[in-house]
Amino acid sequence: MLPMSTHPIPAPDDTPELLDRRVGPYGEVALRRRGPHFEVIANGTFLMDTSDGRSERLLISAALDALDGARGAHVLIGGLGVGFSLAEAAQDRRPGRITVVERERAIIDWHTGADAPLAPFAGQGHGDPRAEIVHADLMDHLRTTEDRYDALCLDIDNGPDWTVTDSNDSLYSETGLDLLERTLGDGGVLAVWSAAHSPAFEARLRARFARIEVIEVPVHVERGVPDVVYLSSRG
């Protein structure tokens, strides 16, 4: 059974307004407004909204804390989303570089175009000289980059067991973890966001990393399961 959506259950008359819809190489992505909040829908699946960014921010802060307060860290954020993770990284003095990898051109446009509706949710991120947005598929970026990251913070799809496109399954596979380990610097931290616990993915992490921490973040949804952040490091 798929985990429940982590956005508030709308009132019957809370009809979403479609602001934009694009079709690209990964299918359809749409931006909707529901009351004061924005929603991103990918291939008909609710992906994220702007109602609550606690777990997306925790993805960044917990990874930086796990680096033992190191300054000048190079942080990769997998998925720009609505911008909460970028906002958290930009308000922290510890990162020296912030690389955001986003494959959907539409999401980048909703952050950086004229009157960009999602830009405010990225805080100071878009004006931060440490930050760079890379338009690329994350797996392609991992295969080709020469960078080594101190923190890999991934918020792709709704987690390992609920991907928007089938091709994203490989990110959480042994092949994907090989790439993630290759681009992770010595003493680095891998942080992965999920909309629910994934026992199989957690087992793969435990087979590779010496230290694993599983952090639950309650969500404001009736009968909803907690969001989960997996933190992994070699020692």
Results as ranks from 00 to 15, higher is better:
228 V>A: 00
18 L>C: 14
150 D>T: 05
3 P>E: 07
17 E>Y: 02
151 A>M: 12
113 G>K: 09
60 I>C: 09
167 S>F: 10
32 R>Q: 13
75 V>K: 02
201 F>Y: 15
208 R>Y: 11
153 C>E: 04
213 E>G: 12
5 S>L: 07
89 A>S: 11
61 S>M: 06
181 E>W: 02
198 S>W: 02
40 V>D: 01
180 L>C: 11
82 V>W: 01
154 L>D: 00
59 L>C: 10
125 G>R: 02
169 D>V: 09
19 L>V: 06
21 R>Y: 02
163 T>L: 10
211 R>S: 14
117 P>D: 12
140 D>A: 15
189 V>H: 04
198 S>D: 10
118 L>P: 03
48 M>T: 08
132 E>Y: 01
38 F>R: 04
118 L>F: 11
46 F>G: 02
125 G>Q: 03
79 G>Y: 04
184 L>W: 09
149 Y>G: 02
4 M>I: 10
86 L>C: 12
90 A>H: 03
67 L>C: 08
47 L>Q: 12
57 R>D: 03
188 G>N: 03
159 G>T: 06
130 R>K: 11
87 A>L: 10
169 D>W: 07
62 A>L: 12
6 T>P: 00
182 R>T: 13
168 N>R: 08
173 S>H: 11
132 E>I: 06
16 P>Q: 06
124 Q>I: 12
118 L>G: 07
56 E>F: 01
89 A>I: 02
9 I>S: 11
175 T>H: 13
104 E>A: 13
95 P>L: 11
39 E>H: 06
101 V>C: 05
163 T>H: 09
229 V>L: 10
114 A>C: 06
234 R>G: 02
203 A>E: 14
162 W>M: 14
101 V>R: 01
195 A>K: 00
7 H>G: 10
229 V>E: 04
141 H>R: 13
219 V>P: 00
133 I>W: 00
24 G>R: 06
166 D>E: 15
98 I>F: 05
71 R>Y: 11
28 E>W: 08
125 G>Y: 03
149 Y>N: 02
186 D>C: 05
16 P>G: 12
108 I>F: 08
131 A>I: 07
135 H>P: 06
154 L>P: 00
170 S>F: 05
210 A>I: 04
161 D>C: 11
24 G>V: 02
